[in-house]
Amino acid sequence: MTADVPELGAYAVDARDGRVGVVMGWVGTYVQLRPPGGGREWDCPPGDVRPAPPADIVRARVRERNAEGRLP
């Protein structure tokens, strides 16, 4: 992990495609991100992970709340 990679549980942006995810951990040299509200994790090189800006964090939290409301 590098100093620029957000900590575990933080919202981050994959700079390669702009997707926002939650930092779930590290596998080898990659950071694992999960979409807000759940879904399949993806691997991102640490050099392409950026802290999510506040507006992206708000949108991510809304997505998570909406996903919680759809649970059985």
Results as ranks from 00 to 15, higher is better:
Gly18Val: 05
Gly47Arg: 14
Ala10Leu: 02
Gly21Lys: 04
Arg65Asp: 12
Pro53Met: 02
Ala12Tyr: 00
Val13Gln: 03
Asp48Gln: 15
Gly28Arg: 13
Gly25Ser: 09
Pro54Ile: 05
Val31Trp: 06
Val20Leu: 02
Val23Tyr: 10
Asp43Arg: 10
Val22Ala: 06
Ala67Thr: 07
Arg59Cys: 02
Leu71Arg: 15
Ile57Glu: 15
Pro35Leu: 08
Glu68Phe: 02
Ala67Arg: 13
Pro45Asn: 10
Arg65Lys: 10
Arg16Met: 00
Val13His: 00
Arg16Lys: 10
Gly39Ser: 11
Gly18Thr: 10
Trp26His: 11
Pro54Met: 03
Gln32Lys: 12
Arg40Leu: 10
Leu33Pro: 05
Glu64Gly: 11
Trp42Gln: 09
Asp56Gln: 14
Asp48Ile: 02
Tyr30Gln: 15
Met1Gln: 04
Asp43Gly: 06
Ala52Phe: 06
Val49Gly: 06
Arg61Pro: 08
Gly37Pro: 09
Ala3Asp: 10
Gly39His: 05
Arg40Ser: 13
Ala52Asn: 13
Met24Pro: 01
Arg59Gly: 09
Trp42Asp: 09
Gly38Thr: 12
Gly9Met: 03
Tyr30Gly: 02
Arg50Gln: 14
Val58Ile: 14
Pro72Gly: 07
Trp42His: 12
Pro46Arg: 09
Gly9Trp: 06
Arg63Val: 08
Val27Pro: 01
Gly39Tyr: 02
Glu64Lys: 07
Arg50Phe: 10
Val13Leu: 01
Val31Cys: 13
Glu41Met: 11
Glu68Met: 13
Leu71Gln: 14
Leu33Gly: 03
Asp4Met: 02
Pro54Gly: 09
Leu33Asp: 04
Asp4Phe: 01
Pro35Phe: 04
Val58Pro: 03
Trp42Arg: 13
Arg59Tyr: 03
Thr29Ile: 11
Glu64Cys: 02
Arg63Thr: 05
Asp4Trp: 05
Gly38Ser: 12
Arg16Val: 03
Arg59Lys: 10
Val22Thr: 13
Pro72Leu: 14
Leu33Phe: 09
Val13Ile: 12
Pro35Lys: 11
Asp14Leu: 00
Ala10Asn: 11
Arg50Val: 08
Arg50Asn: 09
Arg61Asp: 15
Arg59Ile: 06
Arg59Leu: 10
Pro35Ser: 11
Ala15Arg: 08
Pro51Ala: 12
Leu8Pro: 00
Gly25Val: 12
Val22Met: 05
Gly18His: 02
Pro53Thr: 04
Ala55Cys: 01
Gly9Ala: 01
Asp56Lys: 15
Thr2Arg: 04
Pro46Thr: 13
Cys44Tyr: 04
Gly47Leu: 10
Arg61Cys: 08
Glu68Tyr: 08
Val27Glu: 15
Pro46Asn: 04
Met24Gln: 13
Gly37Ala: 06
Val5Asn: 00
Ala15Tyr: 00
Asp14Ile: 01
Pro6Met: 01
Arg50Trp: 09
Thr29Gln: 14
Arg34Pro: 00
Met24Phe: 00
Ala3Lys: 07
Ala12Gln: 00
Ala55Ile: 09
Gly37Arg: 10
Arg34Gln: 15
